[in-house]
Design a protein around this nucleic acid. Sequence first.
DNA 1: ATTATTTTTTAGATTTGTCTAAATTAAAAA
DNA 2: TTTTTAATTTAGACAAATCTAAAAAATAAT
Lengths: 216, 216
Amino acid sequence: MQSFTEENYLKIIYHLSVISNPVQTNAIAERIQTKAASVTDMIKKLSEKELVNYVKYQGVTLTEKGKLTAINIVRRHRLWEVFLVEKLNFKWDQVHEVAEELEHIKSILLVERLDEFLEFPKVDPHGDPIPDQYGNFADLSFLKLSKLKTNEKGTITGVSEHSSPFLKHLEKLGLTLGKRIEVSEIIDFDGSVELLIEDRKINISKEVAKHILISK
Amino acid sequence: MQSFTEENYLKIIYHLSVISNPVQTNAIAERIQTKAASVTDMIKKLSEKELVNYVKYQGVTLTEKGKLTAINIVRRHRLWEVFLVEKLNFKWDQVHEVAEELEHIKSILLVERLDEFLEFPKVDPHGDPIPDQYGNFADLSFLKLSKLKTNEKGTITGVSEHSSPFLKHLEKLGLTLGKRIEVSEIIDFDGSVELLIEDRKINISKEVAKHILISK
DNA sequence: ATTATTTTTTAGATTTGTCTAAATTAAAAA
DNA sequence: TTTTTAATTTAGACAAATCTAAAAAATAAT
Ligand SMILES: [Mn+2]
Ligand SMILES: [Mn+2]
Ligand SMILES: [Mn+2]
Ligand SMILES: [Mn+2]
C-alpha cells in the first residue's frame, strides 16, 4: 500500500515517461511542486519498494509493478472526472483538482462499482482514455488540429492542455468534445486557423490549435 | 484548513461530546486508535487553532468553530454513505470504511452537488440524520426497540451500532430500515425479544434489541 | 582537454504526528 | 486524611516528507 505522496510521484513519473525515458529528477520536481533534493529522497524510497528502477544521476523508470500502480491511479482519476461531469454537472475545467484528491481513495470495490455506474466510459471529459482494471488502454489515435490542412474536416475528441483558462476558452468558442469542425483557412501571417463549426466561422491561434485533438 | 488527522480528532470529539462533556483524553485515544500522549499533543494544537477549549487535566470541549467543522465532516461522511448505497449498490455494512476516506475530500462544490444529486437526503443508510450546509439537523426522535412492550408496534428507523457483523446480522433477519415490526413477546429468561415482521416470527437477543431504533 | 554550467545528490535541519517511559495531577479507597 | 490507583501530561525519540546549503557528477562550452 502506498501513501498519497508515493502515489503522486508514481503518477507523475508515469506521465513524464511518455515524453522522456528515463525521467529526470528536475522534471519530477517541477511537476510535483517540490525541490530536487526531495525528489531524490522519494526516488530512493520507491526504488527500495521496487516501484522504480533507479541509477544515480541517470534518472528513473517505472518497474512493471510501478507502472501498473500508476495506471491504476490514472484510471481512478479519470473515472472520477467522468463522474463529476456526467453526474454532478461539473464543467470540464472544474474537475481536475477534485479528482486529484479522489484518485487516492483506496477501495477496489468503489472503483469497480463507479466504473459500472458510469457505464464503463472509454474516455474522460478531456478525451483521455480510461484504462480498464488490468491496465489496458483502448488506444485511440489523435491528430493535432494544427496539423489539418485547408478544407480538411474532423471531430474534436480530446485536448492536450488541461488548464482551466484554456478549457474555459474552448467552451466559450463552442469547441467541445464531439463537435465537428472544418478548417476553412490557415492564416499565413501568424499560423492561426479559421474554422467552420455549426455554420459559424471562428478563428483560433496556432497555440490553441496545437492543443486540440482531432479524429477524422 | 485542517489536515485529515485534525479532522478525525474533531469528528471523534464531536461524537464523544454527546456522551460526556467535556471529553476525556483517554476516550479519544481509544476511539482514534492511538496513545493518550499523542492525544494531548493534538489537543494542544487544536486549542492553538481555537477549535477546542482545553483545560489541563479537565478534558476538551469543541468551540463553535470546532463544532461547525465537525458537523461538516459528519455531513460529508453521511452523504457519501448514501451515495455508496443508493448509487453504487453497496450494502449498509460496507460503506463506513470508504466514507471515512471520502469525508476528507475538500470541495464545497462537490458536497453541495452531491447533496443535490442524492436529492437532499435527510438520513444516511443507518438512519443517522444528515445536517444541512449550515449545520442544522432535522432532529428525529428515536426509541430503542428494547424499550417497546409486548404488542407495541413500530418502524425501524435507525441503528446505534455500526459494525459490519451487527449490520449483516440484521440484514439476514430482514430487520432493515423502514420495516414495520411488532413485539409479540418478551422472554423473561434472557430478555430476548420475539418480533412479528412481514408475517414471520423471529427472535432477537436483548443486546440486538438495544441497538435497533424505532419510531412509532 | 580544460573550464564553466547544469543537474543531481548528500548532509543536516524542520514539521507533523506518533511513540515509550517517567513525572504530575486528580479521583477513589482505606 | 492519608494512601493507592487511575488519568493525564511532559520529556525525549522516531519516521515520513520536506527544505536549504554545500558537495559531487555529468554535460556543455571554450
Ligand atoms: Mn485531470
Ligand atoms: Mn482528464
Ligand atoms: Mn459511518
Ligand atoms: Mn452512517
